[in-house]
Design a binder for these strands. Structure first.
Length: 421
RNA sequence: GGUGAGGUGGCUGAGUGGUCGAAAGCAGCGCUUUGCUAAAGCGCCGUACUCCUAAAGGGUACCGGGGGUUCGAAUCCCCCCCUCACCGCCA
């Protein structure tokens, strides 16, 4: 959520920065500012009346204690009751409208984020690894079907399209990847492992800005008004919602595995074959909560931690920085890590490492107590430690041998128990 | 699903309808004493909004949320939410 004060004091600055995202939010901002003015006028008037009433009430108390008559003062105090009621209703209504508008505004991109319209304008930051030379690259779906790792047809029977059933060694490999990632991040990168609830309240989704704007992307459990998590970012970031953290507790680093549920309503990509885009997928997420002055370097190290996964597995990848037009709703800056997929002959996003600055923290009222005693908003960051389905794709396609088998990278052997599928 | 107990400032925890924004303690900050540490003493120490060009300084609101009673509500009444405990049912 954008600071209303920034909006009030530098509306044009906010407008130009948001305009870089490509959607014109000028009207929305003007509306919020107009409401702000109205609200404050009503509040000021109300507060003056309240001050008046408080003074009279005190006076009445004093007089009564002395046994004096107070009917005149009581009448005076009552005189403004109707107007006060009206003003109070007004300012509450205005406040609510303004809040709704503010929740609908995306985060400001950082000044250094390259300007651009869509993914085509993202900038290449670095590349790593050698693409394997394959005589006959195959799509992961072909490989997985031959090796009986996945069963899409039966998954569709029980859950509909967009779901997969991992079978036999296929299921075992998925489990191996989860363990491998959690161990890597907790043992070598200093993250604390979290296993959060997979179903959350709406407030949690508001906190990480999936709601109110992206309601139609969420799976809702109607009976209890709960939501299936679209990413572990939601429960894990919200762990400290409404808290004031001691400054020495920062940075907080969490790693969490959860399945992720997304309706992908209106998504063109859902037609994609295989594992690339599904309603349910596994992910190991990294979340950091840090001090504002450190969030810049924390994003770099978060990205490095996520890259380390691919380096350890020897999978070629590249890092791109998202341009202003491609940036997610809550993000001020994002690096995408894209793994090479020989079967698609393209790069696939596996990790999205974002700095939300204080955008989420303001929504969650997540603060820390600074050395000077002031409570300040934290900065939050996260990186999808890896969308496992796409990592899975990359492993199958990059590890394909001439005999049709798939060789797994050595670091996985301890988890999978065999080097070859 | 049933019953009970609770929700007060960063934390713990008092609070009779009228100087209660709220006792006390802890934590924090400052000062004094001290060679250092420790200890002790004294003082300061909530948040949001708002008025003011700004500072200084005012004002208002906030004791889970929302209504109500009242000149006046942390305190009385109603509804809701949440937390905890126990019981039942199921895994």
């Amino acid at each position: 959520m954008i600071d209303i004060r920034l909006l009030r004091e530098q509306p044009d600055y906010v407008k130009t920065r948001l305009a870089a995202r490509g959607s014109d939010l000028g009207e929305c901002i003007d509306a919020a500012l107009a409401l702000d003015g109205e609200r404050r006028a009503a509040e000021t008037r109300l507060q003056n009346l309240q001050a008046d009433r408080n003074r009279l009430s005190k006076e009445i108390g004093r007089l009564r204690a002395g046994g004096n008559d107070t009917t005149t003062l009581e009448a005076q105090s009552k005189a403004h009751a109707a107007e006060m009621q009206e003003l109070s209703n007004q300012s509450a209504a205005l406040e609510e409208k303004q809040h709704a508008l503010l929740l609908a505004l995306p985060n400001l991109p950082q000044a250094t984020v390259p300007a651009g319209k869509d993914a085509a304008d993202n900038t290449l930051v670095r590349e790593w690894g050698e693409k394997p030379v394959l005589e006959n690259p195959q799509d992961h779906l072909v490989i997985a079907t031959r090796l009986k790792l996945l069963d899409f047809d039966r998954a569709a029977k029980i859950s509909g399209s967009g779901f997969v059933c991992y079978t036999g060694p296929g299921a075992r490999l998925e489990r191996a990847l989860i363990n491998f990632l959690l161990d890597l991040h907790t043992r070598e990168h200093g993250y604390v492992e979290i296993n959060p609830p997979h179903v959350v309240r709406s407030e949690a989704l508001v906190g990480t800005s999936q709601l109110p704007k992206f309601e139609d992307q969420q799976y809702r459990v109607a009976n209890d008004d709960l939501y299936l998590v679209p990413t572990a970012e939601v429960p894990v970031t919200n762990l400290h919602r409404e808290e004031i953290l001691p400054c020495e507790a920062l940075p907080i680093k969490y790693a969490a595995y959860t399945p992720c549920f997304r309706r992908e309503a209106g998504s063109a990509g859902l037609g994609t074959r295989g594992l690339i885009r599904m309603h349910q997928f596994d992910k190991v997420e990294l979340v950091k909560i840090c001090r504002p002055e450190n969030s810049h370097t924390e994003l770099e190290s978060l990205t490095a931690d996520a890259e380390r996964v691919l380096q350890t597995l020897g999978l070629p990848y590249r890092v791109v920085e998202l341009c202003t037009g491609d940036l997610g709703f809550g993000s001020a800056r994002t690096y995408d890590i894209e793994v090479w997929s020989p079967g698609q002959n393209a790069y696939l996003e596996v990790s999205s490492c974002s700095n939300f600055e204080d955008f989420q923290a303001r929504r969650m009222n997540l603060r820390y107590k600074a050395e000077d005693g002031k409570n300040r908003f934290c900065h939050t960051l996260n990186g999808s430690g890896t969308a496992l389905a796409r990592l899975y794709v990359a492993l199958l396609e990059n590890g394909l041998q001439t005999d049709g088998s798939v060789r797994l990278p050595e670091p996985l052997h301890a988890y999978f128990g065999a080097g070859v599928l």
